[in-house]
Design a binder for these strands. Structure first.
Lengths: 127, 127
DNA sequence: CCGAATCCGAGAAGATACTG
DNA sequence: CAGTATCTTCTCGGATTCGG
């Protein structure tokens, strides 16, 4: 009954926020930006806790938005590598600032954990 | 069964992203930053489509995170006003940049719609 | 009257097994 | 290895009710 994605085209920010607010979206972008082009399986291992279903779904969405590139290599076994587009650079820059902010608020991260993985799914932060 | 919010304290960015990725969170912050301190009912009308339950829930979370202030005025009828804390300023600055980015990508917003309201719920952007 | 808590249904996200 | 299908689980959201 409520609105679907293309009911109207209300406002740019809203559109962008809606995308980023999608489950796992930020994490995927963050991982791709820190570890560079990554294959599907590796990506799934990096974004700890994500299901294959969610990962494909989000990647498809990000691909449609022009944020990630999907490179299919028909070897045996096949290899699919995902990477950030040029457009994504601006977005990642903002995520970087978010990182800086988080460090100031919660203290710096342990220097070991490579790209800082999530523990809880976005939905679980209800407190 | 899976992880709850306080399982570990993994990484600052992750924590912050998890909070922002929560449903409606960004919209609420955006509205509060653009229209200033707002009462519950008005806020609910601004964040179009949100239920009172979700709004209370999110506001409680944001309050615990030190992002919003809750001011209760025991008049008749009672008035509860929510406003951004000082800490939220840094966060809003980032949202502002997100706004700029969105304008470059999707074109500028119509100058009328005050703070750009969402149409779809965050969960609905599955494409 | 304004704001918060409760119950229940719809629909999304998680887990697992399976296919190309 | 990459992705899909299916089933289960549980969050989200609406209406109603309670409290001040």
């Amino acid at each position: 009954m409520s609105s679907r994605t293309s009911d109207r085209n209300p406002c740019p920010v809203s559109q962008l926020m809606t995308m980023l607010s999608g489950p796992w979206t930020m994490y995927i972008l963050w991982i791709l930006s820190t570890v560079g082009p990554t294959r599907f399986g590796a990506l799934r291992r990096q974004v700890e806790g994500i299901s294959t279903k969610m990962l494909t779904e989000r990647l498809r969405m990000l691909e449609q938005e022009g944020i990630v590139n999907r490179h299919y290599e028909p070897t045996v076994p096949p290899q699919v590598t995902y990477s950030l587009t040029e457009r994504a650079g601006e977005l990642v820059a903002i995520l970087d600032q978010l990182n800086g902010l988080a460090q100031r608020w919660y203290g710096p991260a342990a220097p070991d954990a490579a790209p800082c993985l999530p523990t809880a799914t976005p939905q679980e932060l209800t407190l």
